[in-house]
Design a binder for these strands. Structure first.
Length: 819
RNA sequence: GCCCGGGUGGCGGAAUGGUAGACGCGGGCGACUUAAAAUCGCCUGGCCGCUGGCCGUGCAGGUUCGAGUCCUGCCCCGGGCACCA
């Protein structure tokens, strides 16, 4: 190593990337003799440019995967493109480019950008979701779901985004103003025939996380979303004998029910309405139908409704109570009917007050006076003792729910029941650029599945781009006409396509073998699944991550996956905001691309900087301010390891003390780096490596850089550096003539003896305040420590003349003298 | 309203109940240089009567020999849910 050349990242990085490619260095194959690690990071949408957020998500995931590889695992870290979706269609309309061409060009470009990152992607496993080889299996699985009743079609009021011109799943409608997750436009309600997956069937199972290492935060978000509530279903009967079921979480207040409210859309409204009320009821129903859910589902709105003229009988006391309709009761939750207990439910209270309906108190404070209903200003809390409740009177309120359920079940009047907020997953999209739903509509046979042998149902290329607000598939002159697989007669293809969350539920299974002629390659599945570590943004907590868990379980039930869950460990990176602290978006113009940074500093520096600049789980506003620091660090690594003599000098006599110190620093840092990689604390991995380098610079002049201690330190350093700066580590490893490649070496073992301190700084406190620091032998005992502490001059100033009451000794840490 | 996450120097951040501010950015001083860059060294929470002290982790209390860390009550920022019966 004669030439003390400078670090040229561009040259080093392209050279090693070429070499790794030639060597198929990152190919991951089934190796039964080795433990596997499936590392997965959420695949990007091919928007055309890899931005800083992608790097922030992927680079630490790659470093973690590389760390696992060094720890002896056979690691698979695949990459692909979530290639269906609306932006491609928008590009088509705006620039007259076919979505396929636009998408392909973007993928080309992004592949190049991903390669520059120097990640350990196994490109043989690449998945592109808009290709028939992929979406064929979405279709195949859809058909199995259909057979199993997990996919169904129904007419329902659904959320429609007028800007995206398509329906959305409930999960894609966000916020109080109910806007579209993609474009922020407020959604509208439309009554349409749509395809759904029965996610609610799995609600209970989705609430469980059997030995999953998932962040509590994500689990909480999901539990919130699923919204389980327990109570009872109670059957009321109309005078005509019709049964009306209500769901209530407070069956104990049944005796306080003074009216019933149906959603205006409830099927029995018609039959219940008496002739004299008909015109008023019809007007209200019509008005409610016009009103959007955005308005209807807004709280703090004046509660309105009308009396139907009909009555039902309260099953527990035989009382005849009036039936109203009101738009605060929703057909989409529970049974679309409620029993109203105005004394103990704020909504019912407001309604009763407005329309002068009786309010009856059935729970009263322990020993308190019974509040008079007419004096109430708000609904009463559920605490105290039951009153006015027939057989339940006198029961403590906290036992009343259970007793009522027993009472109802014994008499066959109702039963314990569970309600969920979760809705079935609406998967139909009125868009072109998606997976065609593989069914046909036949006048004679109805909805008929496309036979497996005819899959995939291909998207036609020759469509017309007119921003009509309709899917181009619908306007295609020939595509939709086909023969019915059942009767052979004329039939029409379904022109809706699938939600792209279908693709992202399947992609990790197609990585196993993207060309498999079965949905999931069984051999690869058995070896690699489940995913060991999944990384991605928390914004997917109630969308992708719920869908993919549902999908896995549903696939298990149709026999193509096994085990309860698809992903064992989940970690979320934080969100990188723009430099203006706002969410990065093209429209705001605050999106930062890493390309320029990579040009001037190299990928390794950018990688290190992304791991260093913030806590990975928190993210924050982007700033390239500090990148110079990591660049300097890597230059210093290069300089020291390529020419240690320059720092060491030649005249110095190597000192044993310095080499002992170097070994100590090496093994202490190794311990920290190992721990921090394990727990995804990448920023402290980098600081520890910076610290060790600083120690190496400090000690180099008094070490023999040809000696064992220095060589060990360098060797360990490069193995620790390899996941962070894979190119530079490989370059230095090779220059030191170590066997190719650094990335297949073993992670070093901590030598505890070397890491141990023999002298420590003992903190001396008086009454808990820091007064002195003394250097003492590491194993010092209580007595000796106490003596040394009391001998300190600084301590003397605070202790003299006072009686020592107590001495706290924390071995290896401190002495606290209490006076 | 309910449920999460967070609040530490000028900035990003570090700290198994035990030295608050590691590491880095920025800033200052110095060395090298004709000069600049790069590089190297030192300093860098605030205050005061400055060889020594005092204060300091959103606020107010509490537990403890000792609290950024644990407990109670608040404030602020970010996110989720919300007429869900």
């Amino acid at each position: 190593m004669t030439q003390a050349d400078v670090y040229d990242p561009a040259e080093v990085e392209s050279r090693w990337q070429r070499r790794w490619d030639e060597d198929r260095h990152y190919d991951a194959d089934v190796r039964e003799d080795r433990p596997k690690h499936y590392a997965l990071t959420m695949l990007p949408y091919p928007s055309g440019d890899l931005h800083i957020g992608h790097w922030y998500a992927m680079v630490p995931s790659d470093a973690r995967a590389r760390f696992m590889r060094l720890r002896g695992y056979n690691v698979m870290f695949p990459m692909g493109f979530d290639a269906f979706g609306l932006p491609a269609e928008n590009a088509a309309i705006k620039r007259n480019l076919h979505p396929r061409d636009w998408t392909r060009a973007n993928i080309e470009r992004m592949r190049g950008q991903l390669r520059r990152m120097g990640a350990m992607f196994d490109w043989r496993r690449e998945v592109i979701t808009c290709e028939p080889a992929f979406y064929r299996w979405s279709q195949w699985i859809f058909l199995r779901f259909l057979e199993r009743g997990l996919a169904y079609r129904k007419a329902a009021p659904v959320d429609f985004c007028p800007s995206c011109n398509t329906t959305l799943a409930r999960e894609q409608v966000q916020g109080e103003d109910r806007h579209c997750e993609r474009c922020d436009t407020p959604v509208e309600k439309r009554h349409l025939e749509q395809w759904f997956f029965r996610t609610t069937e799995y609600a209970e199972e989705l609430l469980e996380y059997p030995s999953l290492d998932w962040p509590e935060r994500v689990k909480t978000l999901q539990r919130n979303w699923i919204g389980r509530s327990t109570g009872a279903q109670v059957v009321f009967r109309t005078e005509a004998g019709d049964a009306i079921e209500v769901f209530t979480t407070r069956p104990d207040t049944l005796w306080g029910a003074t009216f019933m409210v149906l959603a205006p859309e409830h099927p029995l409204v018609e039959r219940l309405t008496t002739p004299d009320r008909r015109s008023e009821v019809e007007a209200y129903v019509a008005q409610a139908a016009r009103q959007s859910d955005v308005v209807r589902e807004t709280a703090e709105r004046e509660k309105t409704g009308v009396f139907t003229g009909g009555h039902v009988v309260n099953p527990v006391n035989g009382e005849r109570i009036p039936v109203w309709i009101a738009d605060y009761v929703l057909m989409t939750y529970g049974t679309g009917a409620i029993m109203a207990v105005p004394a103990h439910d704020q909504r019912d209270f407001e309604f009763a007050r407005r329309y002068g309906i009786e309010i009856r108190v059935v729970i009263q404070d322990e020993g308190g006076e019974r509040p008079s209903a007419s004096a109430l200003e708000a609904a009463l809390p559920h605490a105290g003792t039951m009153v006015n409740s027939g057989p339940l009177s006198g029961t403590p309120a906290d036992q009343a729910v259970g007793r009522t359920v027993e009472y109802l079940e014994a008499r066959n009047l109702g039963r314990a029941a569970v309600g969920y907020r979760l809705r079935d997953w609406l998967i139909s999209r009125q868009r072109y650029w998606g997976t065609p739903i593989p069914v046909v509509h036949c006048g004679a046979c109805g909805v008929v599945p496309v036979p497996d042998a005819e899959l995939p149902v291909l998207l036609p290329d020759d469509v017309e781009w007119r921003p009509t607000g309709e899917s181009p598939l619908k306007l295609h002159p020939t595509w939709k006409h086909t023969a019915c697989p059942g009767c052979g007669g004329d039939a029409e293809r379904e022109s809706d396509t699938m939600d792209t969350f279908m693709c992202s539920s399947l992609y990790h299974l197609r990585y196993l073998n993207p060309r498999a002629e079965v949905p999931v390659d069984p051999r690869e599945y058995d070896y690699w699944m489940p995913v060991d570590t999944y990384t991605g943004g928390i914004e997917h907590a109630t969308m992708h991550l719920i869908y993919t868990r549902f999908f896995h379980k549903a696939c298990r039930d149709i026999g193509i996956t096994r085990g309860p869950e698809p992903m064992i460990q989940l970690r979320n990176q934080g969100i990188i905001l723009g430099e203006d602290s706002e969410k990065m978006s093209k429209s705001r113009g605050n999106v930062d691309a890493p390309d320029a940074l990579v040009d001037s500093y190299g990928a390794d520096t950018v990688r290190a900087y992304l791991m260093f600049f913030a806590r990975w789980d928190q993210g924050g506003p982007w700033s390239s301010q500090g990148v110079e620091g990591t660049a300097r660090w890597l230059r210093r690594v290069f300089a020291l390891l390529t020419d240690p003599g320059r720092i060491a000098g030649d005249g110095g006599t190597p000192g044993e003390g310095a080499e002992r110190e170097l070994r100590r620093a090496t093994h202490q840092v190794l311990e920290r780096v190992t721990r921090d990689f394990e727990s995804f604390e990448f920023n402290t991995v980098i600081s520890a490596l910076m610290e060790l380098l600083n120690e190496m610079y400090r000690l180099a002049p008094s070490c023999d850089t040809g000696g064992a201690a220095w060589q060990e330190c360098v060797d360990i350093y490069l193995r620790m550096l390899a996941p962070v700066a894979p190119h530079l580590a490989e370059e230095l490893w090779s220059r030191l003539e170590k066997p190719y490649s650094v990335h297949v070496q073993a992670w070093p073992e901590v030598d505890a003896a070397a890491a141990a301190e023999d002298e420590i700084t003992l903190v001396v406190q008086v009454n808990g305040k820091l007064r002195d620091r003394i250097r003492v032998p590491a194993g010092i005992d209580r007595e000796a420590a106490r003596e040394r502490a009391l001998a300190s001059e600084a301590v003397g100033r605070f202790v003299s003349g006072k009686a020592v009451r107590k001495v706290i000794f924390v071995p290896g840490r401190l002495v606290n003298i209490v006076v």
